[in-house]
């Protein structure tokens, strides 16, 4: 296995009864890359992602994430990845600090490490004034940023973001993508699903899933040339309409 490929997927398939949710997808993701995982609702991207993060068993195929096999070493994968869901799941009835401490704790960080990380995080995001406030009282955009930082707390090799910008305003989205770039520059691989086609333009490479299959995979620039489209939105529409 080449060391700079952190995700290698070969013919990965997931069937629910007779229904093929994910149909033999094959791709790989390089270290430090921002990989956009696009598709309409129901195209199978969430199912595919769940297999990669070790919470859903593939029916067949091969997949290697962060150097570990999804069939045999799902537990090792979990230690090496971060995950943020579209719900920005933090505990509303815990303060910012308590959330950080808790999530640091379940990833097995030491107490001193948690303290160090949590101070750095609070300073980075400018959260000094709200560090001891309940998360429930914070605006959505802040929750999203905290949630992302918490997913990076244990320095994972890869961070999986499931529609991380749903429901937040364009300015916050912009700021959020700056955080993604920063993480990628520091060597974290970012695997992101999104609905927003303008965000697809920010990715290094993009795959587009249609009905469980990956129909296109390239840089946004090449995809636009290939499909003779002005922007990613048109590329997506051309593919999705078949």
């Amino acid at each position: 296995m080449s060391t700079n490929k952190v995700i290698q997927v070969d013919g990965l398939t997931k069937m629910f009864g007779d229904f093929t949710a994910v149909n033999a997808i094959t791709f790989d993701v390089k270290k430090g890359e921002i990989f956009g995982f696009l598709g309409a609702n129901g195209a199978g991207k969430t199912t595919a992602m769940k297999m990669l993060i070790g919470i859903s068993n593939p029916t067949s195929g091969k997949a290697n994430v962060a150097g570990f096999d999804v069939f045999t070493n799902a537990e090792d994968i979990k230690k090496n990845i971060g995950y943020m869901s579209q719900k920005f799941a933090l505990y509303d009835d815990l303060t910012v600090k308590e959330n950080i401490t808790f999530f640091g704790g379940i990833y097995g960080l030491s107490r001193s490490k948690i303290k160090e990380k949590s101070n750095a995080l609070i300073e980075d995001l400018g959260l000094e004034t709200v560090a001891n406030q309940l998360v429930g009282s914070l605006p959505l955009g802040w929750k999203q940023k905290i949630s992302f930082s918490v997913a990076l707390l244990h320095d994972p090799k890869i961070v999986f973001l499931d529609e991380p910008t749903g429901g937040v305003d364009p300015i916050t989205r912009r700021q959020f993508w700056e955080m993604i770039y920063k993480a990628a520059n520091q060597g974290t691989t970012v695997f992101v699903t999104t609905h927003y086609m303008d965000e697809a333009e920010y990715c290094d490479r993009v795959s587009i899933m249609v009905n469980g299959k990956i129909e296109a995979l390239d840089t946004p620039k090449n995809l636009k040339t290939q499909f003779k489209a002005a922007n990613m939105n048109d590329v997506f529409l051309k593919l999705a309409r078949g």
């Binding site: 993060i53 070790g54 919470i55 537990e75 979990k78 230690k79 990845i81 995950y83 869901s85 579209q86 719900k87 799941a89 933090l90 505990y91 509303d92 999530f103 379940i106 990833y107 097995g108």
Partner: peptide, 14 residues
């Protein structure tokens, strides 16, 4: 409901 269960299951916690 909150989606935190998913986060917990993705974490190394069994």
């Amino acid at each position: 409901e909150l989606g935190t269960m998913e986060i917990l299951l993705v974490s190394p916690l069994k």
